[in-house]
Design a protein around this nucleic acid. Sequence first.
DNA 1: CTGAAATTTCAGAATTTTCTGAAATATCAG
DNA 2: CTGATATTTCAGAAAATTCTGAAATTTCAG
Lengths: 194, 194
Amino acid sequence: MNLPPLVQTFVLHFGEMGSRWGINRTVGQIYALLYLSKEPLNAEDIVERLGVSRSNVSMGLKELQAWNLVRLQHKPGDRRDYFATPDDIWQIVRTLVEERKKREIDPTMTLLREVLMQEPASAEERHAQERMREMHDLFELLTGWYADVQRLDTERLIQLLTLGSKVQKILEMKDRLFVVPGSKKSRREDPKEK
Amino acid sequence: MNLPPLVQTFVLHFGEMGSRWGINRTVGQIYALLYLSKEPLNAEDIVERLGVSRSNVSMGLKELQAWNLVRLQHKPGDRRDYFATPDDIWQIVRTLVEERKKREIDPTMTLLREVLMQEPASAEERHAQERMREMHDLFELLTGWYADVQRLDTERLIQLLTLGSKVQKILEMKDRLFVVPGSKKSRREDPKEK
DNA sequence: CTGAAATTTCAGAATTTTCTGAAATATCAG
DNA sequence: CTGATATTTCAGAAAATTCTGAAATTTCAG
């Protein structure tokens, strides 16, 4: 591995982290390298810096492209492929979340919907189905929230995240404005707010 | 594998999903099984239902305990260990997020802080450090938001998530109330709001 | 204590994943 | 076209992970 120490530390760390995320070490290292690099790199650059085989880099880049995590570029008068990550780190986050949702949440939701359609054949299955419905509803809530937030432009997204603890205040304010006070239980009635 | 069809479908799916999350198939299956089960199960129950070895179950349960994802219980007059997931699915989500943060985000932040302390020895390292700072700041924003939201009780959390698209409206309202209109650039000044 | 039951540990087998080098394929300037 | 350059494919080697059975350890009732 042929990298400035500072870069190498980061690249090695992301290689290891990759493993915990179902992404292999080399793919993690390639991505880390591209992320830190000012200029786009071609496959041979990556081979030299990471000290892995050309074919390994080829497969790694293919996987990163399948994840939409790298952009393919060309330099004039050079027919090699150059790769880079988006300059905007928020774009990277959005892509990561989107792709993970597509690969993990969506298929799970499909399966849950299918299983919830079936007739339980026993008390055991009835309880299992109830648990699956809880999970289904949870995922629906989370993906619904994500669908909304994901549409915000980055500036508003940052604003929202920065708001943090103040969010609670806003919710309390909303309560005070819209809910008749006096009854702690009044929430349960949930008067079809429009 | 000796399970009602409906349960088996779910258990197999989570076994596969586990792989994508750096958790092995058996661990995923054990967790799925416990999640769906009405009653706590002991190790031998799990062996029978999943058809894997006793030692594999032992190791899987140990891992799930390390993740704080299962509770150990005892039945009177029975000295075997029984395992269950929390009844409250939100508790499960909170634990999952907390543990992943502890294992993935926190060590990464530590590394980033260390590397950002060092003196860059070249233009390349200077740029790399700049990128690392972007990532550091992003993580800081996200974990700060998380720290706040995590404190909300479940009811308010659901309220917040349900709010979804309305969030943007609230932010716009906040803008209109607190920011002097007329200048698109006024943001850059960021007047140390308290 | 004792010994049966329950659980854990761990070395090596089985399986899966990752990686490589060689060959095949694709691309494009001339 | 041709051949030089670039990229991909893929079979098998290498490495890593997962799983098992046997042995060791722990726990506890009697």
